[in-house]
């Protein structure tokens, strides 16, 4: 194994990890704050991919498509939270089933509008650069960079501003935080909308690298959810888990095949849960 090969694999792992970290971090935040998992996350990714597709198709720059994906993801997320999730603050399993139904609706609506067939988004940065002897796609480097910047910015906001304490207060006891002056409803709305915006951003970033179709989200759900199971509701753990799982997935796929890679990831989820002492609360970062 030469150095170039290692660099190639390492960057590949980083690219995989940064996409799943983007989505999983949003999932972990809303899990912490509202005790729910958005089962439609994959469909929000799909929405992001289709926004890029649509904006590029009408001749606008790729970047506009990515920004639009964030905005659309944010607005749809806010709408979901207000219209659906808010009424289930005390019944988390109903809330996640609501997101499940929402996922079906989103998929079918997109299918009605765009059809069932795969579509493709042209890579806006087709070149590659040489790093340590390995050829690496510029676009993938940009993807890693954008993810790192977004995740880093979010971490800074959570640790350095009063928002972090408020998020933890609402996560611990929303009713009590309300009586202490925290506008918990608005906070939940914003956090959920940010989480769907991040999913949508991730979808828009991977659009040029994959087949865009109404069911594309499901392919990613598996990894995202394992990341959340392994990492729990703590944001920093989720980042570690995203990286660990990307390593297992990429290495196993390379050495054996993708089925064994999937089963290896599944086994990780089981092993981590089996080994962990069940504790639920702790620090956020």
């Amino acid at each position: 194994m030469d150095f170039a090969f290692l660099v190639d694999q390492g960057l590949g792992i980083l690219a995989t990890a940064s996409v799943s970290a983007l989505v999983a971090m949003g999932l972990a935040l809303s899990f912490r704050l509202m005790g729910i998992i958005n089962l439609a996350s994959g469909d929000f990714m799909m929405i992001g991919a289709y926004s890029v597709l649509t904006f590029v198709a009408i001749g606008l720059p790729y970047v506009v498509g990515v920004l639009a994906a964030c905005v659309i993801g944010f607005l749809l997320g806010a709408l979901t939270e207000r219209g659906l999730l808010q009424r289930f603050s005390r019944a988390p399993e109903l809330a996640i089933l609501g997101t499940f139904g929402l996922g079906i609706v989103i998929r079918q609506v997109v299918e009605l509008i765009y059809g069932k067939n795969f579509q493709f988004v042209e890579n806006p940065l087709p070149g590659s650069v040489e790093i340590g002897g390995a050829e690496f796609s510029i676009y993938r480097l940009v993807l890693i960079g954008v993810s790192v910047v977004v995740i880093g910015a979010l971490l800074l906001v959570l640790t350095l501003t009063p928002l972090g304490v408020k998020v933890r207060a609402v996560a611990a006891d929303g009713d009590l935080a309300e009586t202490l002056g925290v506008r918990s409803r608005r906070l939940k709305l914003v956090v959920f909308a940010v989480s769907t915006a991040m999913a949508s951003l991730a979808g828009s970033l991977i659009a040029p690298l994959t087949n865009v179709g109404p069911g594309m989200g499901n392919a990613y759900l598996f990894v995202m959810f394992v990341v959340v199971i392994v990492g729990g509701a703590r944001v920093s753990m989720v980042l570690v888990a995203a990286l660990a799982i990307a390593i297992v997935q990429n290495v196993t796929t390379l050495v054996v095949d993708s089925l064994v890679a999937k089963l290896a990831i599944l086994a990780m989820a089981f092993i981590v849960l089996a080994a962990s002492r069940p504790s639920t609360k702790g620090a956020i970062v």
Binding site: L84, L97, G98, F100, G101, L102, G103, I104, V105, R107, Q108, V109, L112
Partner: peptide, 8 residues
């Protein structure tokens, strides 16, 4: 689609 809506 109807299933999804019924679900919600």
């Amino acid at each position: 689609l109807a299933m999804g809506i019924i679900f919600i």
